[in-house]
Design a protein around this nucleic acid. Structure first.
Lengths: 246, 246
DNA sequence: GACGACGACTTGGAGTCCCAACTTTACCAA
DNA sequence: TTGGTAAAGTTGGGACTCCAAGTCGTCGTC
């Protein structure tokens, strides 16, 4: 039966249908709360709730004092504003691509490994590791957080600015100086709700999820560096490109 | 000033802090609406809104008739229940790994390419493509949606069941039969709110985002297959493993 | 001890009203 | 024509209320 489901869903479904079939094109104004209550013969709560749901789905945006509007397609499925992974160098990042210049802050320190980091680096909990925290900015806006961990005995004595945005070149160079050759990289990607510090640092509006990448550099079967990379989910695409050797 | 931001945020922030620092452990009951109004001296609207925000963030779940509870960690930061990409075969999927047996439904048909698909396959809008839709299930529960597009002239005459879960082997075999060698794979990962059909098919609770993978198989500079892969963001990790050839 | 009924409590849907802050438009004066 | 202002409309936060449906513990009966 469709007769007894919530009335606000009726509003949501009708508006959503009109948006996806193009009756309400991008940029078009959505009927206001007052108009919806009249048109659908529902209370203000239902109208309001319907608008909130559609906004949460990313189909419309509310402009205070003006109204709700159908979101532009470009915002809905954004193009990659930052190319994250390059073609010639898989898993390297190049934030200059796309015409945007990136800047970043970073700070290194030596700490005791937490359980999670110890597991990922195959160390014991409490072993010393070098932690480097980065905040990457594009056009001044924070765009990516990264926290990198290396076993402290792999001699990142003095911490120096990274060359590539992700410091892969720098890492490879530093490692090869200690006789370690990085053989492969493993990444694990998932999405979750930002923690308060993250939404603070990345200046995230409510409702935006983040992409969390756990990246580990391996030398044979020995992990030599692991990092947590956090980017806003709505503005970012991770791009992987890998040749099929077989 | 923090004095003049919405009161419901005060409630949200305090509860969230208690959840992330463990004062309210997973499974713990959240104060009810009535209790929150008393404790924080706010109206029911604010209390209710705060609970809705926390539920949307995936930190708590509401059980009607019982109360709100802190979500279990396993749901919050799940371990990989399905290994998505294998080590020996990068970008191949093996859903058997992890002790779970996967089943899937699929259906093929020939349609006219929409703009997006045409762009990805370097075709003209309206050119014929073979679309195959999959629903993958683990333990009976839908776990992954995939929609695959191939140019119709690449001769998927009779559509036959895939061997691997993602049909990469099958695809490679089929392509090599037509003299096409797949040279590399490019993937683009982002996260977004599920569309109604998606949350329906995947049986998603509200507030759960999805991971959307656009995967394209290339033969040289010619795209031969592209697919959209949609998985629940809270239960899935994408695992990439690639050797560094250089 | 087992079982069932009942009442207290909780969520989620829905309605109504009020207000501050903001946008848009229309109109009037210089 | 231009500039400024006032009015009307809109969003977002908030308070209060009512109700249906569901959970859960208590208490009395068998």
């Amino acid at each position: 039966m469709t007769g007894n489901d919530p009335v606000y869903l009726r509003v949501v479904e009708e508006l959503r249908a009109q948006i996806v079939d193009g009756t309400l094109p991008p940029g078009a104004p959505i009927p206001s709360r007052a108009q919806l209550t009249q048109r659908f013969r529902v209370g203000e709560t239902a109208a309001r709730h319907a608008l909130r749901v559609l906004a949460a789905e990313g189909l419309i945006i509310g402009k205070v004092g003006s109204g709700h509007y159908v979101r532009e397609k470009s915002v809905l499925y954004p193009l990659q504003r930052c190319r994250y992974v390059d073609h010639d160098a898989p898993f390297a990042a190049d934030m200059q691509a796309g015409g945007h210049r990136a800047t970043w802050d970073w700070r290194s320190e030596t700490i005791k490994a937490m359980r999670d980091v110890a597991r990922r680096l195959r160390l014991e909990e409490g072993d010393p590791v070098t932690r480097t925290r980065y905040v990457f900015r594009t056009e001044g806006k924070p765009m990516q957080l990264a926290t990198s961990y290396e076993p402290a005995d792999l001699g990142r004595g003095q911490s120096f600015p990274e060359e590539g945005t992700n410091g892969r070149k720098s890492l490879v160079a530093r490692m090869s100086a200690v006789g370690i050759k990085i053989t492969d990289i493993r990444e694990s990607v998932h999405t979750r709700v930002p923690q308060p510090t993250e939404s603070d640092l990345l200046d995230l509006p409510t409702g935006v999820h983040i992409l969390h990448v756990e990246r580990t550099h391996w030398s044979g079967d020995r992990p030599v560096e692991t990092s947590d990379i956090v980017v806003p989910g709505d503005r970012f695409r991770l791009v992987y490109s890998v040749p099929l050797g077989a």
